[in-house]
């Protein structure tokens, strides 16, 4: 029984209401990102809105649904900091692919 009581407390459990609110927000944000495409927004407005809604959705899922907001900071940093390496990789590959495009246009493009 003592163990059952200890388990029932378990890790911090947010109220069900919070999950429903986050669920609703995820629906709203998904609708918004769909509307970005529906209304044919273009250029930097389109890209920044897509990224904004994406980051908000990802943040809500990680923080609330995956309980990251209530984890000990050591675990949070151990998981989130290495993801920074992905951003570095993206930057490197953007430079690389721009260079590839340049060489393709120079050597395979139409004669000037």
């Amino acid at each position: 029984m003592a163990q059952a009581a200890a388990h029932a407390e378990g890790p911090h459990q947010p109220p069900i209401r919070l999950f429903l609110v986050v669920w609703g927000w995820l629906f709203v944000l998904s609708t918004c990102s769909y509307l970005v495409d529906y209304f044919h927004l273009q250029g930097y407005l389109r890209y920044s809105l897509i990224l904004l809604f994406m980051v908000l959705k990802a943040g809500l899922i990680i923080a609330v649904f995956m309980h990251m907001a209530w984890e000990r900071l050591a675990l949070v940093y151990a998981i989130l900091v290495p993801v920074g390496a992905v951003l570095v990789f993206i930057a490197i590959m953007m430079l690389e692919s721009d260079y590839t495009l340049l060489t393709r246009m120079l050597f395979f493009g139409p004669e000037p």
């Binding site: 388990h7 029932a8 890790p11 947010p14 069900i16 999950f19 669920w23 629906f27 998904s30």
Partner: peptide
């Protein structure tokens, strides 16, 4: 997203036994 919502609630009900 709906599947994620039901999953999050399942976890809480699990801890409530």
């Amino acid at each position: 997203i709906s599947s994620s919502g039901t999953m999050a609630m399942a976890v809480t009900f699990g801890y409530r036994r």
